[in-house]
């Protein structure tokens, strides 16, 4: 292989890894300093890493483990009774996707979370068109540590989202 081609490949690899490391190690050392001074490069790197390697942040389950988030949906039937229903989720892999969504929306403001909840309620209404009201609730539970769990301490669920939708029936 000709030397000028090798130089091109090395340069391309350097840029590729710079953009990846710029995102992965943005909180550390020289990348923290460089990113603060070069927002344009950071922006370019963001687009590149999204297209090329679909985000370059590999800090999964860190720095700490997120609490449990559980979605509970219930609806009021025409006879007035409330029943718990499940979102249409055909298998565990789809459930993992929905769980990613639950985690992801914790980072957005409450009023926007309600818009997402409305989407979920709409999907439940598709399955249960007779429903008069649909309630979407999201609970958070932080597990006690090992020592506390052995002593009998158990997680208490905390409601982080509770929205009631009128289906106008």
């Amino acid at each position: 292989m000709r030397n000028n081609l090798k130089i091109l490949l090395v340069a391309a690899a350097f840029i590729h890894f710079y953009f990846i490391c710029q995102k992965s190690f943005r909180e550390y050392g020289m990348f923290r300093v460089l990113n603060a001074h070069m927002p344009g490069v950071v922006q370019a790197g963001e687009y590149y890493t999204q297209l090329a390697v679909m985000q370059a942040d590999y800090s999964f389950f860190s720095p700490n483990i997120a609490p449990d988030f559980i979605m509970l949906v219930s609806l009021q039937k025409p006879d007035g009774h409330w029943v718990a229903v499940a979102m249409p989720i055909p298998n565990t892999e789809v459930d993992k996707r929905l769980h990613s969504c639950l985690l992801g929306i914790q980072r957005i403001p409450g009023d926007l979370q309600q818009i997402i909840a409305k989407s979920w309620a709409a999907r439940v209404l598709d399955e249960h068109p007779e429903a008069k009201f649909i309630r979407v609730m999201v609970q958070r539970k932080k597990q006690p540590d090992l020592a506390d769990y052995r002593k009998g301490v158990r997680a208490n669920p905390e409601i982080v989202l509770d929205v009631l939708f009128n289906t106008h029936h």
Binding site: S59, S62, P63, N64, D68, I70, Y149
Partner: peptide, 22 residues
């Protein structure tokens, strides 16, 4: 990134993960 978290340094992270109902 994990080493920055107290859950991992204290050795509790696997417990928290596996006790997580999700």
């Amino acid at each position: 990134a994990k080493m920055e978290g107290i859950d991992w340094r204290a050795g509790e992270a696997v417990w928290y993960t596996l006790a997580n109902s999700n």
